[in-house]
Nucleic acid binder design. Structure first.
Lengths: 224, 224
DNA sequence: CTCGTACACCGTACGTCGTACGCTGTACTA
DNA sequence: TAGTACAGCGTACGACGTACGGTGTACGAG
């Protein structure tokens, strides 16, 4: 019934798994993962809902592909520098990317088989550690530790309702402190006051723990 | 129309926010968070779906309450010991609890305002650190670092499709190695082989990173 | 030039979801 | 005895994922 005047638009306007997944990521960035439905996604692509199923077997597969797109965005550890700088680079990049796509974090939990970009990433990180002199088991330990820190930080960051020092100060005054009776929560009150006074910026927190972890790993490079 | 022979069952079989939330946690443990629907939950409680809304304003509020129940299960840092032992205790407990309720991790990301148990927990941890001599800002750093590690580890653990060394060995042989061409992923192959050979048990991984982090924090106890 | 087949895409339909709304029966107070 | 409050329920609505069976266009073979 429809479409009689459209002709060679196909190759340009036509769908593809690429286009579907990329648009899904955009939609999730904009509206959160709960706002991502097959119908809405199809709408954003100017297509019918069922057309998507020619490119993705199910919504689950779509989510898998989205997570892998996110992994593709994370910078691999550069090979030219010392291992600490390289790992810092990739960790900082990972945090940035996960902050840009907060929905990806909650998806990680439920996706059990890593996509190709995830594997490539893991390989590159392991390579960096092994070349720096970490024995196999130590490299595994370091991997777990660093990834735990990065993911856990991103997870906590995603649940913060503020981004900057100013917003923190405003929220502390208006929202937090009122529900924190000073006698029941003396230390949280103390912290909140001190953080606001110091102009605490959560964005700078990441590097502190990261460098501390990297320094703590350094001595393990040559041991068994 | 119904219910004419039931009488004093009310106080025993009657609902309450407690019962609703606890049963929701059980259901989520059993079927995952996707398997938790208001109808199914009501069914498990022998009630109609809409009855739940007398105890929870919305499903969102139910999820908030479930997360707080999980926090209640986490052991607070004991006050009698040195700070490292205390923090180790609570971290180990947190990991256990989160492993028992994997759905809670993905919920953390979307819940922006902490419940009472969460606040009490945070207060206790901060108290422990401050009493151990950490200055306010350092205690904040330590908090972020430790929580990041615990949450991130739990997140990674939840996405593992195996729990024991044996299962890892089996999966490595049957699933992972076949899709990891040795020329493209030399280091992952090396790691997989070494881990299987060493009888690597992911359950022991947690303590390694935890103790490393605790040791790295120790020297910061008295500095500004 | 026709026709068959393959492909890209779509409309409809089903069962499930969260929940707004309004009704019932019971329990207790006046 | 009447009135009120409350616990719980039934129905209904719109949105979801997706099974199924179309329908138009492109293209190679005859």
């Amino acid at each position: 019934m429809p479409a009689k005047e459209q002709r060679q638009v196909a190759s340009d306007r036509g769908l593809s798994k690429q286009r579907v997944v990329v648009e899904a990521v955009r939609l999730a960035d904009r509206e959160g993962v709960d706002g991502l439905s097959m119908r809405r996604l199809a709408g954003a692509l100017g297509a019918g809902a069922m057309s998507l199923y020619h490119y993705v077997a199910s919504k689950e597969e779509l989510l898998d592909a989205m997570v892998d797109v996110v992994f593709e965005e994370i910078e691999l550890p550069p090979e030219e520098t010392d291992w600490q700088s390289a790992m810092r680079r990739r960790a900082v990049s990972a945090r940035q990317v996960l902050a840009r796509h907060p929905w990806a974090i909650s998806l990680l939990e439920s996706r059990t088989s890593p996509g190709p970009a995830n594997l490539r990433h893991h390989e590159a990180v392991t390579a960096c550690l092994r070349r720096a002199g970490f024995p196999v088991l130590m490299a595994t330990h370091a991997n777990w530790l660093l990834d735990s820190y990065v993911y856990g930080f991103a997870l906590q960051e995603a649940s913060l309702p503020f981004d900057t020092a100013d917003e923190l100060a405003a929220m502390a005054e208006d929202v937090y402190l009122p529900q924190l009776p000073a006698d029941e929560f003396p230390y949280l009150n103390e912290s909140a006051a001190a953080l606001v006074a110091a102009g605490y910026d959560p964005a700078e927190e990441f590097i502190f723990g990261l460098d501390l972890v990297l320094a703590a790993l350094e001595p393990l490079r040559a041991s068994a």
